[in-house]
Simulated assay, not measured.
Amino acid sequence: MKSFIAIAVLLVASLAITTAEDDFCYSNVVQACSNSKAGVFDCNSKFGGISNSENNLNAFMKKKLATSYDYMLLQTHFDSYQKNRPGFKKLFNGLSDESWDETVALIKHITKRGGVVDFTGFGTDRLSAVGSEKLEIDELHALAVALDAEKKLGNDAIKVHQHASHLNHQEGKVSYDPELTQFMEEKFLEKQATTIRKLSGYANDLKKLMSVNDPSLNVYLFDEYLAKQ
C-alpha cells in the first residue's frame, strides 16, 4: 500500500512538472494539437545561454573556415616547383587540416545545441597576404602571417568564452553557459596556445638563420627540419 501511494505521489509530481509554465515544448505541442494553424517553435535542444552566444560561435566558425582555406593556398604555394619547400608545405597542410577539423567541430556544436549554422559573409576575414590574386610571399613572412592569424583566432576564442562565462542579463537574455565554456577550453584555447608557441618559435629561429648575407642554405635546412616534424 505504501509503495502504491509513493508511486502515485511521484506521478502527480511528474505531471505537475510537465505542466509547468516553463515547459515551452509541452505547451507548444498542446497548442499545436488543439489548433491546426499553430506551430511548434520551442521543441528544440536550446538551453542555458546558447541563444545569446550563437552569433559569436557562427562568426568564430567562419573565421576558422576562411583561415583553413588560406593555409591551403600557402601549402600549394610552397609545394610548387618554383618554391619546392616540402617542410613548409607540411606545416601549412597541418594547420589547414586543424582549422578544418575545428570548423567541423564548431558546426556540430552549434547544431547540437539547437542553433543554426550561418555562412553569411563568409570569406570577408581572409588573410591579407593570401587574399591577393597573385600570391608572393617568402618563408619568414608566411610564418609571420600564420602567427598573426592564430593570435587573432585565439583572441576570438577568448571572446566567445568570456561572453559565455558571465551572468550577463541583457534585455532578458542570459549569456552564461558553462557547457559552452568547457567546449571552448577543451577544443580551442589550449590548442591555440600550443600553435601560437610553435609558430613564434619557428619565426624567431628562421629570422636568426636569415640574418646572413646568403640565407638560402639555412632556409633549405630549416625546411628539411620542418619536413621531419
Score class of each variant (00 low, 15 high):
K198V: 08
D205T: 08
Y202G: 12
L73Y: 10
V174D: 14
N218W: 06
D23V: 07
L140E: 14
A193P: 10
K151C: 11
N55C: 00
G115F: 07
K108C: 11
T181W: 03
E224S: 09
F188Y: 15
A203D: 02
E133I: 09
Q82A: 14
N52R: 09
M184T: 04
P215I: 00
A59I: 08
L95V: 07
E150W: 00
T18C: 14
L199E: 15
L180N: 11
F222P: 06
D23L: 08
E224N: 14
S68Q: 09
H141W: 02
A8V: 08
V9I: 08
A157C: 11
K63Q: 11
A59Q: 13
N28V: 01
Q170S: 12
F47V: 03
D148T: 07
N218L: 13
L127M: 15
D156S: 12
T195W: 06
S51K: 03
E98P: 00
I137V: 01
M210T: 07
V30M: 02
S165W: 02
D70A: 14
G114N: 05
N56M: 12
S45L: 01
Q75C: 13
P86V: 12
E136H: 07
E190K: 13
A13G: 03
N56R: 14
L226Q: 02
L209Q: 02
D101M: 07
D177A: 09
F122P: 00
S68F: 14
T120Y: 06
S165H: 01
F88I: 05
K159T: 13
K187M: 15
G48L: 05
A6G: 00
V160R: 04
T120I: 09
G49H: 07
K89F: 13
A20W: 05
T124G: 08
H77I: 09
G39D: 15
Y26M: 02
L143W: 10
V130P: 14
V9S: 10
V29Y: 01
K151G: 11
H166V: 10
